[in-house]
Design a protein around this nucleic acid. Structure first.
Lengths: 193, 193
DNA sequence: CCTACCGATCGGTAGG
DNA sequence: CCTACCGATCGGTAGG
């Protein structure tokens, strides 16, 4: 094992732990000391790996996007019928937003505004891919007559409904992810033909 | 004019200004000094009116709920047909969330988690009335066969779509509030009979 | 990655 | 509501 790998592991540790703490307490409610403690470092050491606290935040968000994009892109590019494809996309998205140990995207949803403009722009590049992929699926639905509109507003309303679950979903209490996905699809697209 | 009125006016000034600053910069991004400055007070003086910074936050949220509830309750209790009633409710809600100078409810949506548990419980009492009123209208839609489900999940998905607009809507750019409301209703309820 | 530290900020308070 | 202030915290850095 080379030294570079060890460094990378420590950096990955910081990102993973920061994601959990940011999710639980918010970006401003978490100190760089909290993060350092949680990985067994001294208070100044995270700044050996990251230039600033906000760079850690951006890394958390990028990690979440990079981890989530392949599955979503595979679904969007796949051959499922429009309705089934949409349901699969919603289900995959719920997993990323609500699944156990998936803290990265919730942090993005909660604390997007804490990024500096420069970092926001950097992370936005990855977000754009996600948004585009949703738009493609929405357009397919519209072309198949399953949705009234293929506008960006339609997509944003759909993504809003799904993303907002992060504020009310409680694991092991009420509906599960499959059930929520099914209910969302039924509501947005109407009853199955 | 009695002294009590003057005091009340200053308190109201603080709440209004705090709402604007909290909305623009977030709760943690706003200092009590910022708020004091903006109303022409010295740094310690807000604490003559409020016990803590979080009490200001709770006051902002409660002000928004108390201001928005009457119109929404009137719509819910009114005699409009289910579809028209729902559209009116969505439109009124968009106004509260996105309308010029309406900073209170966005603060609630952004910074709910910054409330202490005690304050959260206090504000939740007013939120419950809002949620119940939406649930009533959703139930009417379901009874009229316009919506697949009258579950709490259905309501949360709808409110999520509408509330999430706070994260993407830009005034005077893209669709206006009427247009968004119409599009939301068309998407959720299907085309008009 | 640690040691040792700084400069600034911030919520809040006592006393009037 | 002001004056004057405190105690604590916090992001970040120099030097090794």
């Amino acid at each position: 094992m080379t030294a570079a790998v060890v460094i990378d592991n420590r950096r990955a540790d910081l990102v993973r732990v920061a994601a959990r703490l940011f999710r639980e307490r918010g970006f401003d409610g978490t100190t760089t000391r909290d993060i350092a403690d949680a990985v067994g470092m001294r208070s100044g050491s995270p700044f050996y790996h990251f230039k600033s606290k906000q760079e850690i935040l951006a890394a958390v968000m990028e990690e979440g996007l990079v981890a989530g994009l392949p599955a979503a892109e595979a679904i969007a590019a796949g051959t499922l019928a429009p309705r089934a494809k949409f349901q699969a996309l919603v289900r995959a998205h719920l997993e990323i937003v609500l699944g156990e140990g998936h803290d990265f995207i919730p942090v993005l949803l909660y604390d997007w505004r804490r990024l500096t403009p420069e970092l926001r722009e950097r992370v936005q590049v990855l977000r754009d891919r996600y948004d585009q992929l949703w738009q493609d699926v929405v357009n397919e639905l519209s072309a198949a007559g399953l949705l009234k509109s293929d506008s960006a507003v339609a997509r944003l309303l759909l993504m809003g409904a799904v993303n907002y679950t992060v504020l009310w979903y409680k694991p092991g209490q009420g509906s599960g992810l499959d059930q929520i996905a099914a209910e969302a699809v039924a509501m947005f697209l109407g009853p199955e033909a």
